[in-house]
């Protein structure tokens, strides 16, 4: 193992540049450890975002050697290329400063995709019984563990090419709600995801699936939405 890693970190906003640091390489060191080492030992003005450090909160995603990754669960030994790490903010999002991307557009698209649960009952009604073996529950289960890290959003070229596109995470969220039998908002939700920039804009590159740190498959969710919206259109519901 080399003693030092050459670490290039993005500094500034959109028109920034990479700054090089030499960081000691250690056993079991994550990319987030490297960034934290720079902030604590070399330049305290470095801005980046993290919270849980264990792959739950989805805060620490960055671009590492050209690919979006969750940095708290990415070991440097897996991603260092020729002793070098190039770390930047997530793509397809505005840069606040240094490694911190502005996630506001990402969450606005969740809202546009009607990614909010619409209750169909009151607290006076009995709790809905949902069989774990039912097809909608299985479909929702496959997609529900999203941590909102925006890695898929940064890895998606449709997002890059079409600024109206809702993106894999928002559509994946919509798919979980489409399969929630308790939800009462599916007519509006299907209309939202079938509109311009919705599920039918997806090119099925599957980069979202390839890069999702939680091994979800948003492309499959989006394909489900394509079928469901087509069925709704044929039935005259859209």
């Amino acid at each position: 193992m080399a003693d030092m890693i050459e670490v290039l970190l993005w500094r500034g906003k959109e028109d920034g540049r990479y700054q090089t640091f030499q960081v000691p390489q250690r056993e079991n060191q994550t990319v987030l450890d490297v960034v934290s080492w720079v902030q604590r030992n070399a330049d305290p003005t470095l801005s980046y975002r993290f919270a849980c450090r264990v792959g739950v909160c989805g805060s620490c995603a960055m671009t590492v050697n050209g690919r979006p990754r969750w940095t708290c669960r990415t070991h440097t030994s897996r991603v260092v290329e020729n002793g070098r790490l190039k770390i930047g903010p997530l793509a397809n999002l505005p840069v606040i400063k240094d490694l911190a991307a502005d996630l506001q557009p990402f969450f606005e698209k969740w809202q546009q995709a009607k990614g909010v649960f619409a209750p169909s009952k009151t607290r006076a009604d009995p709790v809905e019984t949902i069989s774990p073996a039912s097809a909608p529950r299985i479909a929702a289960d496959a997609a529900i563990e999203c941590i909102n890290c925006a890695v898929c959003f940064a890895a998606c070229d449709t997002v890059r090419w079409n600024e109206d596109y809702l993106g894999p995470a928002a559509l994946n969220r919509a798919w979980t709600l489409v399969n929630d039998v308790r939800d009462a908002g599916n007519r509006e939700r299907l209309a939202a995801v079938a509109a311009d920039g919705g599920c039918h804009a997806c090119h099925s590159h599957q980069s979202c699936q390839e890069h999702c740190p939680n091994k979800l498959n948003p492309t499959a969710s989006i394909a489900g939405l394509k079928r469901r919206t087509m069925q709704a259109y044929i039935r005259g519901e859209l």
């Binding site: 671009t63 793509a91 505005p94």
Partner: peptide, 17 residues
């Protein structure tokens, strides 16, 4: 995002699909 900032973000294209 400016083209310059984008230069470091094309690694996701190394994907068979």
């Amino acid at each position: 995002m400016s083209p310059r900032a984008r230069q470091h973000t094309a690694g996701h294209r190394r994907n068979a699909l």
